[in-house]
Design a protein around this nucleic acid. Structure first.
Ligand SMILES: [Zn+2]
Ligand SMILES: [Zn+2]
Length: 827
DNA sequence: AGCACGCCGACT
DNA sequence: GTCGGCGTGCTC
C-alpha cells in the first residue's frame, strides 16, 4: 500500500497522511493537487508533498478521492521553499500553501442542505416544530441552502441541533458542493462544414442554393473574404472568431448565421484563448541604449554578481536603474533562463507593463494582487509551461512555479510593501528572494536610491557586491531642496493655512511656465479628526482603542481598523458643547486649500481614496502624464510608480509627521520617503526645486535629505542600531498576545514573558508591553519583543523554545482563549 | 480554521 | 424537560 503526505490549507503545523487507492496508484505524483476529505465531510484540495509506504499506526488514513491534474501544479523546489517559509516564519506549511497557491487552484467544498427526496412536508406537518417548518418552507423555495446560512435564516447562533434533528427525521440531506475551479477562457468560432471545405467545387452548388436568401449569401461571402479557403483549404480548420465574423466590418444577422449552422453549412466550435492580449511582434523595440554611467554600473553589477550572489545597486533617484535591469533581464532571456522582476505593490502600473511589453513581448508574464483568480492561474501555468521567461510582479510572485530561475531583481528593495503583514506567513519578500535564488543558484540584484539599512550594512560588510550610480540620467541634476521654517513663517503672517508664501509662489510660477508640480502630504482624507473645541474630546471607536477618522464625502467618522462608522456627532459626549470642529491635515484638505489659493490651477489627487477602483490609479497617472493636471496632491503613493519628465517642483507640506513613529525604523523611513518624494522633481536637463516645510528646520535628518547624503545618514543610523541592539545587529521576533479581556491578555503575556525570560534569558526579552493601540476589534493586545543575536546562537533551537513556550501557555486552563501570533523580522 | 459534540442555564 | 449558547478538542 502506498500513502501520500498531503499539505492542506489549514493552520495546523503538519501534513496529513492519506491512502493512495490502488486504482490511482500510478497516477499520484509529488506536487499533484488532490481532492481529499478532511474532518467530517469537508473537502479540500491539498498538495502531495511526499509518497511513502509507511502505514500510520495510530489512525486509519482516509483515501485520496481524486487527482485533479495530469501534470503537477507544484514542483519539488516550491515545496522546499514552502517548508523553509514555514520554519523560518514560524507558521504551518498549510498557511504557506494558502498564500502561495492562487485561489483558482484551491478548491474546497461547502456544505449545503436540501430536502430529502422521499420527504413530503404536507404529510409530516405534525413532526415539525415551528422552526423546522420555517426551514423546510425555505428549502422548498430555494432547493439548496448553504449550511452557514441556516443560522441567519432561523435567526439563531447554532443551527447544528435543528439540522441534526431534521437529518434524523429523514427530512433533509447534507450535501457537499465543490466550488468552481479555474475556467479557461473560450472563444466561439465558426467554420465551413467539412463537406464544403474539402471540395471547393461544392461551393458553387451552395451559392446556387443560397441565391434566393440574400442574408445567408452575404454571410458566406463575408466568410470567404475573411478565411481564404480557395487559396489554402487548411485555413478553414481555424475558421474565424464568431464575434469578429458577426460584428467586424459589415454586420451580419446572427439569426441567419444561426440558420446556416443548423442547416449544416457552418459549424460552431470552441477554442481556448489566453486572457492576456498578445503583443504584436512589430511593435517590439530593442532595449534602450545606456549612458556611459549606466554602462559602467551595469559592468560593476555583472562583475559583482560573478563574485557574490547578491549585488546592491545603489542608484540615486532618476539615475535610470530600470534600463540596467532591462539589460540584465535581456541576457537571461537570451540564455533561455527565467528572470523575476519584483516591484512594490503600487508601482505595478499599466504604464510600466506596457513599457516592458515593448521590450520583452510575449515572454513577459505579470502577477499582481489586483488580477482575477483566472488571470493568476494563467500566469502560473505560463511560468510552469515555460511560456513566460520574465515575470514582473509583487512579492507573491516569489511563489510561482519557476524551474530555471537565474536572476531576481528586487526594485526599491527598501519598500515596506515587501513585508507581508496579517495573515501568516508574515514573510519579507526581499529576504525570501534571496532564499529562492539560493535554491535555484540564481543571482539577486537589490536596487534602491535609499537602500534599507540591512542591505547597505551587508554591502559594507562585503557580503553583497555593490554597484553605485551617482549621477542622473541625461543632463538632469538633483533638485535643490529648500527647508521652510513654518513656525517663523506663521509669526511673520506668511502662512495661508498650510501653505507658506514661498510654496504658493513657486507653485504658481511653475504652473505659469507650463511645468507640473507634486504636493506630498502623508495622510489621506480631509481633516483626520473631529474634536470638541471646548474640552478637546475626540470620538474613539467602540471596538478599538483608536480615534475615529473623519471622511468628508459621507460626513461620517470611521475606524480604519475594524470598519466601524458613525455620523459626526453634533454635541460633545464629554462636556455637551456643540462646538465640534475638524483638525489635522489630509490630502483632501490640501487639495481644497490649493484650489482656494490658486483657483486657476488644475489639481489632481492620488491616494487610497481616489484609487480604489481597478483602473483609477492608471487613469490618474495617465492624466498627469498627458498634462491634464498641473499639480498632483498625494500620499506616499506618489513616491512610487512612474517618472514624470515635466515635474519641476515638489512641495512637502509637513515633513515632521514621519519622525514621530514609536519605532526604531522611523528615521530610516522618513529619510527614504523624503528622498524618494524629492526625487520626483526635475528630470531631463532641468534642475527641480523641493520646498520642505517643517516646524524643526534644524533637524539634521532634513539636512541630510537636502544634501542627498545617504552615507552620513547611514553612519549615524547604524551606530544607533548597534548601540540599542536593533537589526541588522540582532534578529527580532515579535509576539502579539490577544484576548477579549484586558486582564487575561495581561496575565497571559506575563506568563509567556516569564517562560521566555527563563528559557532565553532576561536580556533577550523586551516586554510584555501594551502597544500604542492596545485594543483592536474588541481584542486587547500585548506585545513581547525577542531580540536574538545574529551570530553564535542556534536560531532553530531558540525558535523551538519560543514555540514551546506558546504551546505551554495555551495548555494552561485560564489561557485557552488567548491567541498568540508570531512575527519574525517585524517591520 | 471549521466543525462536532457535550455541558449548563433560561424558559416553556 | 428542551433548546440554544458557548467552551473544548480534533482533524490524516
Ligand atoms: Zn467637549
Ligand atoms: Zn474599530
Amino acid at each position: 500500500m502506498k500513502f501520500a503526505e498531503v499539505i492542506l490549507p489549514v493552520p495546523i503545523p503538519k501534513s496529513f497522511c492519506y491512502v493512495i487507492p490502488s486504482q490511482l496508484d500510478l497516477e499520484v505524483l509529488v506536487g499533484h493537487r488532490v481532492l481529499v476529505e478532511f474532518g467530517n465531510r469537508k473537502m479540500y484540495t491539498g498538495i502531495v508533498s511526499e509518497i511513502h509506504e509507511t502505514e500510520p499506526e495510530k489512525y486509519i488514513p482516509k483515501p485520496i478521492l481524486e487527482v485533479l491534474e495530469v501534470e503537477p501544479s507544484v514542483n519539488a523546489s516550491q515545496i522546499k521553499l514552502w517548508q523553509w517559509v514555514a520554519d523560518y516564519y514560524m507558521c504551518s506549511i498549510g498557511e504557506v500553501l494558502n498564500v502561495a497557491l492562487p485561489s483558482g487552484l484551491k478548491l474546497s467544498s461547502q456544505s449545503y442542505i436540501q430536502i430529502h427526496p422521499h420527504f413530503i412536508i404536507e404529510e409530516n406537518l405534525e413532526q415539525l416544530s415551528d422552526r423546522e417548518f420555517t426551514l423546510m418552507s425555505y428549502l422548498e423555495k430555494e432547493q439548496t441552502i448553504p449550511y452557514t446560512q441556516v443560522g441567519e435564516i432561523l435567526e439563531i447562533k447554532s443551527p447544528y441541533k435543528t439540522i441534526k434533528n431534521l437529518i434524523e427525521k429523514e427530512a433533509i440531506l447534507l450535501i457537499e458542493k465543490i466550488k468552481e475551479r479555474y475556467k479557461p477562457k473560450m472563444e466561439k468560432r465558426i467554420r465551413l462544414s467539412q463537406q464544403y471545405a474539402d471540395q471547393p467545387d461544392s461551393l458553387d452548388d451552395l451559392f446556387k442554393l443560397l441565391s434566393k436568401r440574400q442574408k445567408q449569401e452575404d454571410a458566406l461571402l463575408k466568410y470567404l473574404s475573411l478565411v481564404p479557403i480557395h487559396e489554402d483549404y487548411l485555413t478553414n480548420f481555424h475558421g474565424v472568431a464568431k464575434r469578429e465574423f458577426l460584428h467586424v466590418g459589415r454586420p451580419l444577422s446572427p439569426s441567419s448565421v444561426g440558420t446556416m449552422t443548423k442547416n449544416g453549412i457552418f459549424e460552431e466550435f470552441e477554442r481556448q484563448i489566453p486572457r492576456f492580449e498578445l503583443s504584436v511582434a512589430d511593435k517590439m523595440q530593442p532595449t534602450p541604449v545606456l549612458s556611459p554611467a549606466q554602462k559602467e554600473c551595469l559592468q560593476k553589477t555583472i562583475q559583482g554578481l560573478s563574485e557574490k550572489n547578491v549585488c546592491l545597486l545603489h542608484g540615486i533617484t532618476g539615475s535610470g536603474k530600470t534600463e540596467i535591469y532591462l539589460q540584465l533581464i535581456k541576457s537571461v532571456i537570451e540564455n533561455g533562463e527565467q528572470a523575476l522582476f519584483l516591484i512594490p505593490e503600487i508601482a505595478l502600473s499599466s504604464q510600466l507593463v506596457k513599457r516592458l511589453k515593448v521590450y520583452f513581448g510575449d515572454v513577459l508574464g505579470i502577477y499582481h494582487s489586483k488580477f482575477s483568480d483566472n488571470e493568476r492561474v494563467e500566469t502560473w501555468k505560463g511560468v510552469q509551461e515555460g511560456q513566460f521567461q520574465v515575470i514582473v510582479g509583487t512579492r507573491s510572485s516569489l511563489f510561482l512555479p519557476f524551474s530555471d530561475l537565474s536572476l531576481i531583481i528586487v526594485d526599491e528593495e527598501h519598500d515596506s510593501s515587501y513585508k507581508a503583514n496579517d495573515p501568516a506567513p508574515r514573510y519579507q519578500g526581499r529576504d525570501l528572494a534571496l532564499v529562492l535564488a539560493h535554491m535555484h543558484h540564481a543571482k539577486v540584484v537589490l536596487g534602491s536610491a535609499t537602500p534599507s539599512l540591512e542591505s547597505f550594512y551587508l554591502a559594507v560588510k562585503n557580503k553583497y557586491a555593490y554597484a553605485g550610480l551617482h549621477e542622473r540620467f541625461g543632463d538632469a541634476q538633483l533638485p535643490e531642496i529648500k527647508i521652510i521654517d513654518v513656525k517663523a513663517k506663521r509669526k511673520q503672517k506668511k502662512m495661508k493655512d498650510d501653505f507658506s508664501d514661498d510654496l504658493l509662489h513657486i507653485l504658481h510660477q511653475n504652473t505659469e511656465q507650463g511645468y507640473q508640480s507634486i504636493l506630498f502630504q502623508n495622510r489621506r482624507g480631509y481633516s483626520p479628526y473631529v474634536t470638541c473645541d471646548v474640552c478637546n474630546w475626540v470620538p474613539t471607536c467602540p471596538s478599538c482603542n483608536v480615534k475615529l477618522t473623519y471622511h468628508i464625502y459621507r460626513n461620517e467618522i470611521r475606524c480604519h481598523y475594524c470598519g466601524h462608522k458613525e455620523h459626526v456627532p453634533h454635541t460633545c459626549v464629554s462636556c455637551g458643547s456643540t462646538e465640534m470642529k475638524t483638525v489635522g491635515l489630509g490630502t483632501q484638505k490640501v487639495e481644497e486649500e490649493l484650489k482656494t489659493y490658486l483657483p486657476e490651477v488644475r489639481v489632481g489627487r492620488l491616494d487610497l481614496d481616489t484609487t480604489r477602483r481597478k483602473h483609477s490609479y492608471d487613469q490618474i497617472l495617465t492624466d498627469f502624464e498627458q498634462g491634464h493636471i498641473d499639480i498632483l496632491v498625494g500620499t506616499q503613493m506618489i513616491t512610487k510608480g512612474l517618472d514624470f519628465d515635466n515635474v519641476r517642483v515638489v512641495g512637502i507640506i509637513n515633513a515632521d509627521t514621519m519622525l514621530y513613529f514609536p519605532d526604531f525604523r522611523a528615521h530610516e523611513r522618513a529619510f527614504q520617503m523624503l528622498t524618494q518624494v524629492s526625487g520626483r522633481a526635475g528630470r531631463r536637463g532641468e534642475t527641480g526645486t523641493v520646498i520642505l516645510q517643517t516646524q524643526q528646520p534644524s533637524e539634521t535628518l532634513f539636512a541630510k535629505v537636502a544634501r542627498n547624503d545617504y552615507h552620513n545618514f547611514y553612519r549615524k543610523e547604524i551606530k544607533d542600531r548597534e548601540q540599542y541592539h536593533y537589526p541588522p545587529f540582532t534578529r527580532l521576533i515579535k509576539l502579539t498576545i490577544r484576548s477579549e479581556k484586558q486582564d487575561l491578555t495581561h496575565d497571559a503575556a506575563n506568563y509567556l514573558g516569564r517562560l521566555l525570560v527563563n528559557w532565553l534569558g532576561q536580556k533577550r526579552i523586551l516586554g510584555p508591553q501594551e502597544p500604542g493601540i492596545n485594543k483592536i476589534r474588541n481584542y486587547y493586545l500585548s506585545e513581547i519583543l525577542i531580540k536574538l543575536e545574529r551570530e553564535g546562537i542556534d536560531l532553530k533551537k531558540a525558535k523551538g523554545l519560543i514555540q514551546k513556550a506558546i504551546y505551554q501557555q495555551k495548555e494552561e486552563k485560564p489561557f485557552k482563549r488567548v491567541w498568540v501570533s508570531i512575527d519574525v523580522d517585524p517591520q
